[in-house]
Every structure is written in C-alpha cells, then in structure tokens.
Amino acid sequence: MGAYIIRRLLQSVIVIIGVMMATFFLLQLTGDPARAMLPLEADPEAVERMRIYLGLDRPLPVQFYYYMVRAIQGDFGDSLTFRHIPAREIVFSRLPATIHLALSAWLLIIVLSLFLGILAAVRRGTALDNGSMVVALFGQCIPSFWLGLMLILLFAVTLGWLPTSGRQGYDIRYLILPAVTLAAPATARMTRIVRSSMLEVLSKDYIRTARAKGLPQRLVISVHGLRNAAIPLVTLFALDLGSLLGGSIITETIFGWPGVGLLAINAITLRDFPIVQTVVFYVAVGFVLINLLVDILYVALDPRIRLGGQERK
C-alpha cells in the first residue's frame, strides 16, 4: 500500500508540473503580455521597457525557468487591474466564498441523492421510483445556468422570497438558490448511480439471507446494503467536489456570488491574465489533490484494492 501511495504521489507531482507548463503556454497564446499591461496608446519605448522589466526580452527557455521557479511558489505576478497587488492575494481573498458555496452544494448532492436513490431502489417499480428517475433524467438535461435563471424568476422575482443575487456573509437566504443551482446536475446523476448500485447490492445473496433471518428492513438496507454499495459511491461523491470547484464559475456569475469563479470571468473580460492563471492553477491543483486523496481513501477503505504494482484503471 505504501508503494502505491508513493507512486500516486509521484504521478500527481508530474501532473502538477504539467499543469504549470500548460498555464505558461496559455499565457504565450495571449500574445504580448507587456502590451496587455500598458494602456493602448503607450509608445513603443514604454512597451520595450515593460518587456525588459517583465523579462520578456530573454530567451523562451530562460523565461520558462523563471516562470517555473515562481509558479512552484504559486506566484503568477501582480494583478493588472488591481495594481501592485499580487494576483494570489486577490484569489485567496475570494476563496472562502467559493468554498462556502461548493461545500454547501456538495452537502446537498450527498444528502439528496442518497435519500432519493435509496428510496427509489427500495421501492423499485413504484410510482415513487419512476417519479424520481424522471426528475433525475430531467435534472441531467437542464442547463444549470438556465435553472439558476428560472429559480431567480420564480423565488426572487415572482414570489419575492429570496434575494436575486449577492452574498451577505453566511446569510443562508443568499446561499439557497446558488447552492441548489450548482448541486442540481450532480444530484441528478448521483441519484441514478446510487439507485443502480443499491439495486445491484440488494440482489445479492447475503441480502436475501439477512432478510430471511428476520432482520428489519431498515437494518438490511443500512448495515448490509449501503455499506457494501458505499465504496464506489464515496469515490464518486469525492470526485464531484473537485468538479464543483470548476462548475461554480457559471453559477457564481449568474448569482453575483463574489467567489473565485466570478473573479475569473471578470478577469477574463478585463484581460487580467495573472488572475486567470492563478485561478486556473489553483483550481487544477485542488482537483489533482482531491483525486489523490480519493485514490488513497479508496485503498484505505477497500482491502481488496491493495494491489501494489498493478496499473490503476
């Protein structure tokens, strides 16, 4: 198991180095960063001075070396719109809002999909099962940003129960609509997966044995059923958290939620590339780390997967 973890750790380091290289080339695609940092009417001399200041006059491999040295420290330079403030500081100041939203949505996904999925599996073939499967199918097909707009239309504009957008500290009224919007597609997908993995487990012999020996339904499902269905589900739920970090971009934009996603979109329209790079970098690193944790968790939870040298599927 130790060897497996070390191998996965090394693999993650390689991927993170790849991520840093990719963000470097993303910046190369933008053209001349010196020009981006100066007003349009700047004279060629000023552009040249800025190029020297930024080290852009040096050969590409040298630039790449200095870039990597700074990237390892998570430093992508100062923001172009907020002068003289490191992009990293600005991104970090927005992080709590995004984590607040992502964790709330994640909780919603887990609670709702477990509840609906298990209920549908246990009541297989009933109206309740069919109904929740139809809702889940629809949930997968609704563009989440449209769902967000429709929720605003219904609960904020028409009924006036909830605010349309913004964030006031940890006030839950501001959180409800964005969290539901962000959670909806994954909840729909996970409900279907929970249902089918529960059905598979419930058809096993040991469930029949448990039922035959007179165990109450509640215990059959929670102790014998869910526990055996849990391992793949834990992985999938954990992976969802990673994709929520990325998916929050659109939700944050619709609801004016002042997180990293909204920051990234605004930075993109203002062509503030250090901010874009920082966001892309940290979200990707977060995603890699979550994946790594999931794989380690997976091995820790399931003794059958402690394979050592085998290739990970």
């Binding site: 790849g18 991520v19 990719a22 993303l26 874009v276 990707a284």
Partner: peptide, 23 residues
C-alpha cells in the same frame, strides 16, 4: 496518458473558458 491526466486536471468548463478567452 500523462498529457490526458494533465488536461483532466483542469475542470472542462474552466479550461474551455480560459482558452476561448485567450484565442
């Protein structure tokens, strides 16, 4: 496969938005 891993490290939506914003 490693290039694929690196690419999957970027959430798809974020990656597409970032590249479209640049090009």
């Amino acid at each position: 496969m490693r290039v694929g891993d690196v690419q999957l490290a970027f959430p798809f939506v974020l990656l597409v938005i970032a590249v479209v914003a640049v090009v």
